[in-house]
Computed example of a mutant assay.
Amino acid sequence: MKYLLDTDHLSILQRQAGQDYTNLSSRMAHYPLSDFAVSIVTFHEQMLGSHTYINRARSLDDLVNGYELMTRLVRDFKVLPLVSFDPGAAMALNQLQLQRIQLGKMDARIAAIGLSRELVVLTRNHRDFVKVAGLILEDWTV
């Protein structure tokens, strides 16, 4: 595994539409699927989103749609390896926190996983992730 898909890149793949999807999927086609992974943090973020959708359901149709969304998430996460937040990531996160980098909680956790495993993080969110020294970033949607 070489590449860690940030939540935004994974969401583009899940939508399967648009120029960003075309660019990303074309680039990924040049590599074996085994080169890619997603983090448990991305799973957490997406599961929180579906959970929020279910909790805000105003009708039975909304509830059905919310659970279908959650089912698709489980199916999507069976395709790529899931990278855990392990003690190495915890140590990297601690170092980021000591540096007082202004970074969202989930982004900091994803960055810590990328740093600890020496993975290239595929993301459009350069504005935030570029603050993390040593983190290798690429945007495959352009």
Rank of each mutant, 00 (worst) to 15 (best):
2 K>V: 03
3 Y>F: 15
5 L>V: 03
9 H>K: 09
10 L>G: 01
11 S>F: 08
12 I>W: 01
14 Q>N: 11
14 Q>T: 05
17 A>L: 14
17 A>W: 13
18 G>N: 10
24 L>G: 02
28 M>Q: 02
28 M>A: 02
28 M>P: 01
34 S>M: 05
34 S>H: 08
37 A>N: 12
40 I>W: 07
46 Q>Y: 12
48 L>D: 04
49 G>E: 11
50 S>W: 07
51 H>R: 15
52 T>P: 00
54 I>C: 12
55 N>H: 13
56 R>P: 01
57 A>F: 08
57 A>E: 06
57 A>W: 08
58 R>F: 00
58 R>M: 06
59 S>A: 04
59 S>G: 03
60 L>F: 07
61 D>T: 10
63 L>F: 12
64 V>S: 03
65 N>P: 01
65 N>I: 00
65 N>V: 00
65 N>R: 15
66 G>D: 07
66 G>N: 07
67 Y>E: 12
68 E>C: 07
68 E>P: 00
69 L>K: 10
70 M>F: 12
71 T>E: 11
72 R>E: 14
72 R>D: 14
73 L>S: 05
75 R>W: 06
76 D>Y: 15
77 F>H: 10
78 K>I: 02
78 K>H: 10
80 L>W: 12
82 L>K: 08
82 L>T: 13
83 V>L: 12
84 S>F: 05
84 S>M: 05
85 F>T: 05
88 G>K: 10
88 G>P: 02
88 G>E: 14
88 G>W: 06
89 A>K: 03
89 A>S: 14
90 A>K: 11
92 A>M: 10
93 L>D: 04
94 N>H: 13
97 Q>T: 10
97 Q>Y: 07
97 Q>N: 11
98 L>A: 11
98 L>C: 05
99 Q>K: 14
100 R>A: 07
100 R>P: 00
101 I>L: 12
102 Q>P: 00
103 L>T: 05
104 G>A: 02
105 K>S: 12
108 A>Y: 05
111 A>M: 01
112 A>K: 06
112 A>L: 00
113 I>V: 13
113 I>T: 10
117 R>K: 15
117 R>E: 14
118 E>V: 07
118 E>H: 15
121 V>M: 03
122 L>D: 02
122 L>P: 01
122 L>W: 02
123 T>M: 07
125 N>T: 02
126 H>N: 06
127 R>M: 08
128 D>I: 09
128 D>K: 11
129 F>N: 05
130 V>S: 13
132 V>Q: 04
132 V>M: 03
133 A>I: 08
133 A>E: 15
134 G>Q: 08
135 L>K: 08
137 L>M: 07
139 D>S: 03
140 W>Y: 06
141 T>Y: 08
141 T>C: 13
142 V>T: 11
142 V>C: 06
